[in-house]
Nucleic acid binder design. Structure first.
Lengths: 289, 289
DNA sequence: TTTATTAATGATTATTTTGCATTAATGGAT
DNA sequence: ATCCATTAATGCAAAATAATCATTAATAAA
């Protein structure tokens, strides 16, 4: 049963006149007549009471007109919706991102995405470093923003941002600029550092910093979460090394001393993910870069 | 867009294999492939992610599968329902009937109809005599049971029942049988009679009764509704003449004296009404007669 | 590297739909 | 009553659409 013939039927049910309806539908009266006939024979329902002069809906026809109008509308809506999904304008995307950028580049990024695709639902997730890759592979997240490149096959990565490392100290700390930092004084500091995983390139950069001063830091506290680290520094429990982007967080009572070491931000996604939502968002991010 | 191709789509979405699906649907793989392609191009939505080896639903395809399954079910239900209406098994019929038969032949009639067409909805209406014809013509009722034949063009009538008139008196009334009734005593009675309309054949019969006794009755109360009349007779406010079928009503405290005058029952319907529900019901009634 | 599997596609055939011309029924006008 | 205009159905030919068969091309597995 063709939806087109149902549309013809509804038009005829409104006009109750074959010639007029056929004209409106841009077909001949003959074609319309046969369309209705085939509908009737397919349904085994007489739709119109008609003689050579008059056309009138039967009770069954009147019932079907009512119902079909609703159904056609519904289908129309569904098809439009599907088209939006196809175009990547609808749907959901789950993005994991590190805490450090939640106040700096994330707000910009989200604003851009949602102004370009206002119907898109974005879910933000904080995922522990060790789980990120698995979550991506298992479709628990669609996009991961990380400070490490991903070497897994099936996952693609691109660098999207670079920021400096900064030494984070309380406002009353003797370190005012980079020039105050020396091997001697560094060795006396107590450090609060992120949990550094084996082979993490982010961890490597931090190690490089210490190596450049030929110091092995006293690390007495570790946390995965930057906001925790910041709170601890504020309470004079130590000093920290964090990406510069934390400056965007609430940072009164703290001093960020920019260091000549850079840390990169990458986005990671499944190479074989053809979800149009993802490619749209990806394109947008890469275009903005 | 053909519903058949949507069914193919759903089958393929379940199988995710063209050859198997084509076999199940009794078409060739080539035909199925082209059906899906034409669906996709008509919708402007890619339904499956596929290469020469694998078939997988796209997000839009998966959405459509869900939605279309529901819609197809709905349509199926609608079409079946329409078929039943067509066959006159479903739908509604509105029947007007006089009060007098609501306890005698109506229950039988309704039982017959609803056992034959259990899905039929029957609406019973009490319509004032003067409105009956107009209501029928204006499609407010489909079937009118009356005590008068209908002379309007476009309305068909058939007699379905005949019953006797009866004199209705309180149990303690001196009239015990027809033999007690005389011109002299009749003239002393106070009568409660139905509102008698100009040209009503039912009214004519009642007039004939009085004429046969050469009496002009004292009518001091008139009511359209038999049950009201009966209540009044019970309270000794007068005596009445009613169709015998009122005997089936609650009638303790009353005596029905059968009179040698008959009143007929007719059914009336629109001559041009092709509603299958009506013709079914009509056939049933006429067959039972 | 070879083989088996499998979706797509070109060419042909079959089916369905359409348009044109005509027919037959019917309501209204004379 | 009769004729006329209107209008839905229909026979036939043409056009459009869909199906089949045979083949191709990609690819996962042996």
């Amino acid at each position: 049963m063709d939806l087109r013939s149902i549309k013809y039927f509804i038009a005829l049910a409104n006009e109750l006149h074959y010639w007029n309806t056929a004209a409106k539908m841009n077909i001949t009266q003959s074609a319309l007549s046969r369309q209705i006939q085939s509908l009737e024979s397919e349904l085994n329902v007489v739709l119109f009471d008609r003689n050579k002069r008059n056309v009138k809906l039967t009770p069954a026809g009147s019932f079907l007109k009512q119902k079909w109008e609703v159904e056609l509308n519904e289908l129309d809506f569904i098809h439009n919706f599907a088209r939006q999904i196809h175009l990547g304008e609808r749907g959901t995307i789950k993005i994991a991102h590190p805490d450090s950028i939640s106040a700096s580049i994330m707000p910009d990024l989200l604003a851009t995405i949602s102004s370009e695709f206002p119907k898109l639902q974005i879910e933000l997730v904080q995922v522990l470093y060790e789980n990120q890759q698995a979550f991506l592979s298992n479709y628990k997240i669609d996009l991961a923003i990380t400070r490490d490149t991903n070497n897994t096959s099936g996952i693609k990565s691109t660098k999207i941002y670079t920021d400096n490392l900064a030494l984070v100290v309380p406002e009353d700390h003797p370190y005012k600029t980079i020039k105050d930092v020396s091997t001697l004084s560094l060795a006396e500091q107590r450090f609060i550092l992120p949990t550094i995983d084996e082979g993490s390139s982010y961890g490597l950069i931090i190690q490089n910093f210490f190596k450049s001063f030929d110091v092995v830091p006293e690390v007495y506290l570790q946390s995965e979460f930057g906001s925790t680290i910041i709170a601890l520094v504020k309470k004079h429990l130590g000093i920290a090394i964090l990406p510069d982007s934390y400056l965007h967080h609430e940072s009164t009572g703290l001093r960020f001393i920019k260091l000549p070491f850079e840390t990169d931000l990458y986005i990671n996604w499944r190479a074989d993910d053809h979800n149009p939502v993802l490619s749209n968002v990806l394109n947008l991010i890469l275009k903005k870069l």
